[in-house]
Deep mutational scan, measured.
Amino acid sequence: MEVRTIKVFTTVDNINLHTQVVDMSMTYGQQFGPTYLDGADVTKIKPHNSHEGKTFYVLPNDDTLRVEAFEYYHTTDPSFLGRYMSALNHTKKWKYPQVNGLTSIKWADNNCYLATALLTLQQIELKFNPPALQDAYYRARAGEAANFCALILAYCNKTVGELGDVRETMSYLFQHANLDSCKRVLNVVCKTCGQQQTTLKGVEAVMYMGTLSYEQFKKGVQIPCTCGKQATKYLVQQESPFVMMSAPPAQYELKHGTFTCASEYTGNYQCGHYKHITSKETLYCIDGALLTKSSEYKGPITDVFYKENSYTTTIK
């Protein structure tokens, strides 16, 4: 009895394709271990004539594949690729409408935090270190965002349907971005203890939790000093293409032309909904596939993004 075979390709990165001759009487799992086709788990399936010449994702289970996976995804987590594939199996079914010149995501599976993050990423200057993220990001900007969303979920250790947080998501993504040249110098002034300067680099240099107003941050924000008295913390120097200011959701007025974009969060910790506000020729609110415009805006804002380049204080 002759062994019926077909020729397929296996890959971990969709760049390096490895030619395989597979036995049609055995499952993919018996031949390769966990195997995925377009995100779908085909591990328990036997090869079919229609699979001839198709590319299958496999887990990096030998040295060659491990090197290829690390170079593309910059992670050695053995569960990463499987999590990416199972997320992709959902995100490829989502709709990605162009809204006001940006790629958004039609609401499904509690994905409003991903839509808000995706919209924000198209408006701030950011370059990702893992080629996987950078490639998928370019495709997302062009309207094909399924891979990018699935990668975000995998890097953030999230599953489809789980509630997510924009600030946490951005923080994970910033860790995989090139923020080497970003720098922030802060000064804390206390009447009792004097003053202390701190220099922050990388992710810490672009994120701040405690106030939404970048102007206020430049002037000074009140913080408790270690001595128990009130101290003032203010920005001395900022070198970065953008800054992200966050605070627990509270009524906040966004003035046209003073910011790049913002995240609105309605609801409580267990259950809520994100919308995205962007400042173009007027203010726009993007909620999944829905767009509304207004000249002014007041609502429960939790993150505001500002364009920056270089700032030095005039406070002496």
Rank of each mutant, 00 (worst) to 15 (best):
E2F: 10
K7G: 13
T11L: 05
D13Y: 03
L17F: 10
H18G: 05
S25H: 10
M26I: 13
G29D: 09
F32L: 12
P34Y: 12
V42G: 05
T43Y: 09
N49S: 13
S50H: 11
L59S: 12
L59T: 13
P60I: 07
N61E: 13
D63N: 08
D63C: 07
T64Q: 14
T64M: 12
V67R: 14
E71F: 06
T76G: 14
T76C: 15
P78L: 09
P78S: 09
L81Y: 08
R83V: 05
N89V: 14
K93A: 10
K95N: 09
Y96M: 04
K106Y: 11
K106V: 14
D109T: 04
N111E: 04
Y113V: 04
A115C: 14
A115N: 07
A117C: 09
L118I: 09
Q122K: 02
K127T: 13
N129S: 09
P131R: 07
A132S: 07
Y137A: 08
R139L: 11
A140P: 02
A146C: 07
A146N: 02
N147Y: 09
C149M: 11
G161H: 04
G161F: 02
G164E: 02
D165S: 15
T169W: 00
Y172L: 13
L173D: 04
R184G: 15
V189R: 09
C190W: 01
G194E: 00
Q197P: 08
T199C: 12
L200W: 05
M207G: 03
M209W: 15
G210T: 01
G210D: 00
Y214T: 01
F217E: 01
F217K: 02
G220I: 01
Q222V: 10
G228P: 00
Q230N: 12
T232E: 07
T232C: 07
E239A: 08
E239R: 10
E239N: 09
P241S: 08
F242Y: 00
G257E: 10
T258M: 11
T258Y: 07
T260L: 15
T266K: 07
N268M: 10
Q270G: 13
C271I: 11
Y274S: 01
K275Y: 00
I277V: 11
K280P: 00
D287P: 02
G288V: 00
L291F: 15
K293W: 10
Y297C: 06
G299I: 02
D303Y: 04
F305H: 00
F305T: 02
K307Y: 09
S310D: 15
T312M: 14
